[in-house]
């Protein structure tokens, strides 16, 4: 396979053709934070936390899906990049309960984000949905990374019980017409729990143990 050389943060990196910037960076141990990325799923490129600055590009590019080119010059920690990452984390903190998302909490610390900055005066609390014997859905913790929908659909289970519903900020994970899970095509494989990064999906026993 052909090898590509590029520069990441001033360091020359050689990687196989077709690699993403994220893969290339990890080869050199250069850490780029991710949220919606999952090793075994198709990267949806939606959280934009892994954006980097690429010379010649008008906007920042998501490193998880941007394929390297020969001679590409990439900066992973420019002020523009850092501003975007910090702001994304601050906005997330304002819209979801991240107390059980250790990786995100770590990023918040690392990028010096202020979790209180955008927090609304009146927080709207959504309660956990306990509608089946197996697992609990607490969408107050959901960051809409969409991994649960991915695994429920084409990526793993092909059971098609979950979707992103709504639009914009009011997007949410839902079942068919919002029905309780036992009335849907859900087979309770729980593969969605496996990929949930924030504890929004949790085995019921763990949930009951925690409260």
């Amino acid at each position: 396979m052909k090898e590509i050389s590029l520069y990441i943060d001033g360091r020359m990196v050689k990687c196989p053709e077709g690699s993403t910037i994220l893969e290339a960076a990890r080869l050199k141990g250069i850490e780029i934070p991710t949220i919606c990325f999952h090793e075994s799923l198709t990267p949806p490129g939606l959280c934009r936390q892994c954006v980097v600055e690429v010379e010649g590009a008008r906007v920042l590019l998501p490193s998880c899906i941007t394929i390297v080119r020969e001679g590409m010059v990439v900066t992973t920690d420019s002020p523009r990049v850092l501003r975007a990452r910090k702001t994304i984390l601050e906005m997330l903190s304002a819209t979801a309960d991240l107390s059980e998302a250790p990786e995100l909490e770590q990023q918040i610390k690392a990028f010096g984000a202020d979790p209180q900055r955008f927090r609304p005066e009146e927080e709207i609390k959504t309660g956990p949905i306990v509608d089946n014997p197996f697992y609990v859905r607490d969408y107050g913790k959901c960051i809409l990374c969409g991994k649960c929908v991915q695994v429920c659909s084409e990526e793993v289970q092909l059971s098609y019980a979950l979707t992103v519903a709504g639009r914009g900020f009011d997007s949410r994970i839902s079942t068919f017409y919002g029905k309780p899970l036992p009335d849907t095509s859900c087979v309770f494989c729980g593969n969605c729990i496996e990929v949930c990064p924030t504890g929004a999906l949790k085995p019921r026993k763990e949930f009951e143990n925690d409260i």
Binding site: I35, P44, G45, L46, C47, R48, Q49, A84, T87, I88, M91, L92, A94, T95, F118, P120, L144, V164, G166, R167, G168, F169, D170, S171
Partner: peptide, 21 residues
């Protein structure tokens, strides 16, 4: 924009709402 953001990517989904607020 708060009404029309599709909600897929984080900056726009949350940014359009917070901007409007």
């Amino acid at each position: 924009f708060n009404h029309e953001s599709c909600g897929k990517c984080y900056p726009c989904r949350m940014g359009t709402r917070l901007n409007h607020e």
